[in-house]
Nucleic acid binder design. Structure first.
Length: 484
RNA sequence: CGGGGCGUAGCGCAGUCUGGUUAGCGCACAGCGUUCGGGACGCUGGGGUCAGGGGUUCGAAUCCCCUCGCCCCGACCA
């Protein structure tokens, strides 16, 4: 049998039509379904289980780095949102408003939060009086509503789930340090847990968060060559503290405005996992976040319920004891072949087959989802060998994605090459830029590519040269890409 | 919000151009039987406000008007 043979025949091949493959696999694998309200989706159990795993791992990291969880209200008075002009301007087009309570029209409209800087800033003003109150390090897991014109499951939905961290500090340096610490926390989480390599960097003015001093982001390359922003970390400076009046008396008894940050990742991460790892057979989940890590499939021949099923149940309970997320598929209405394809489509990292031949040999057959490699594992080695294989899968999925990212990162200095590459191969283009927003806008107009990240490597020799487009002296080393 | 495509059973579609018995097909679903190491097969059966509203007509899935929704490609965004 050809290792690359395509067994799943009910979805559009990824290579044929990426967008279609994406929306089909999400529905077939029951990650999400469309809800009655435009742009809203239901996250179904397999999709939500994936989110819970991501959430759990990330929450642990956030807490370990000193933050605590809290919860702020869903509704924000219009006047609060209006305080930061740039912030309001940025979000106004996509805010959903509550205008009535029951039959009664409200005196002041209430915004369904598009993000929580405004409400949190207001509360911080009440809580922060002295340098001794700082830093404030709070995170919240919440839902957000943004009335987007074009939506796609997980990538851009009207309502989405996320975590948003909001911190306040004594000094600008401390806020900047927090912003960068979170950026690397995100990078590490996404690379280690989701097995997706990312580029971490600073955003340009045009891509910056509405109301921030600086925005940093992690960007990943999807398998269709487009970039996806997977997380952002903002240094808010004193923009919000000034309008919300978050003042404190510092160590020298001077009244000062607090320095703030905010940062978040959302259910978009699920879309990233789907697009960065999936293939023509369907989903491919990294073991660390997979809702089911091992699927046990008894080979149902003859009196399999007496001869095979008990051994399969033993395998299941042994692996459960080893702390793994295991499921035994003992349904009699489906053939083993059907089950192989089904669980492959749903992205389960490892399949264990057990049939009469294996029982005679006191072993099982393990098949990896990522490369379909088969391996016989003796019964008595299960609890030791299976976790090892899962770890290998996690690592090689990252290696595979990293290889893809490298192969699709083109370093070049010539604008004609830039245009050709972005059109033909997409991917990242690593090049030099003058720093002029007008130049950036023109590149976007001409190629649909935007600056995804400004590299923070400071070595002077790396940024010496000419802007890829205007040929003026360059100031930044940047990554361009067409983005989601 | 612009351009394009589409809406008929849970899913995928035919039927619409050229109005006319009871709206079909495949998959899925239910029952029974035979199967089962890479998406098995036979027989039987259930399931439809033809997206919604209005109009034309003796008669509308089909023609006309309006509304809504979904997908793709742009502009905007996590």
């Amino acid at each position: 049998m050809n290792k690359n043979e395509r067994f799943v025949k009910k979805i559009t091949p990824k290579s044929a039509d990426f967008s279609r493959w994406y929306t089909e696999i999400i529905q077939k694998a029951e990650l999400a379904d469309y809800a009655p309200v435009k742009g809203m989706m239901v996250i179904r159990p397999p999709g939500y289980a994936l989110w819970e795993n991501i959430q759990q791992l990330l929450d642990k990291r956030i807490k370990e780095s000193g933050h605590s969880n809290a919860y702020f209200p869903l509704l924000i008075p219009e006047s609060y949102l209006q305080k930061e002009a740039e912030h309001l301007e940025g979000f106004a087009p996509e805010v959903a408003w509550v205008t009535h309570g029951g039959q009664e029209e409200l005196e002041e409209r209430l915004a369904v939060r598009p993000t929580s800087e405004a409400i949190i800033g207001n509360m911080y003003a009440k809580w922060i009086k002295s340098w001794r109150d700082l830093p404030v390090l709070i995170n919240q897991w919440a839902n957000i509503v943004r009335w987007e014109k074009v939506t796609r499951p997980f990538l851009r939905t009207t309502e989405f789930l996320w975590q948003e961290g909001h911190t306040a500090h004594e000094t600008k340096e401390e806020a900047e340090k927090e912003t960068l610490m979170i950026l690397s926390l995100y990078k590490d989480a996404v690379e280690t847990d989701l097995a997706i390599p990312v580029i971490a960097g600073k955003k340009t003015e045009r891509e910056k968060f509405a109301g921030a001093l600086e925005t940093y982001a992690i960007e990943a390359l999807m398998t269709d060559g487009k970039a996806l922003q997977m997380g952002t970390s903002h240094n808010l400076g004193q923009h919000f503290s000034k309008v919300f009046n978050i003042r404190f008396e510092d160590r020298n008894q001077n009244l000062q405005y607090a320095w703030q940050t905010s940062w978040g990742v959302s259910t978009r991460l699920i879309g990233a996992v789907v697009m960065a790892h999936g293939d023509d057979s369907g989903l491919k989940f990294p073991p660390k976040v997979a809702p089911i890590q091992v699927i046990v499939i008894p080979i149902s021949v003859g009196d399999w319920k007496e001869n095979v099923l008990p051994s399969a149940q033993n395998v299941e309970s042994e692996l459960k004891k080893a702390g793994l997320k295991v499921k035994l598929d003992d349904r009699e209405e489906f053939t083993p072949g059907w089950k192989f394809s089904e669980w492959e489509m749903r992205g389960v990292p490892l399949r264990i087959e057990i049939g009469p031949k294996d029982i005679k040999e006191k072993q099982v057959i393990a098949v990896r989802r990522d490369n379909r490699e088969k391996e016989a594992i003796p019964f008595n080695a299960l609890s030791q060998r299976v976790p090892e294989i899962l770890q290998k899968i996690q690592e090689s999925m990252f290696e595979e994605a990293l290889k893809f990212q490298r192969e699709n990162t083109h370093e070049l200095q010539n604008y004609e090459d830039f245009k050709t590459v972005i059109e033909a191969k997409k991917g990242f283009i690593k090049t030099l830029w003058c720093g002029d927003p007008a130049c950036e806008d023109e590149i976007k107009e001409e190629t649909m590519a935007t600056i995804r990240a400004i590299l923070m490597e400071k070595e002077e020799e790396k940024i010496q040269g000419k802007c890829v487009r205007c040929q003026k002296p360059s100031k930044f080393l940047v990554f361009f890409a067409r983005a989601y």
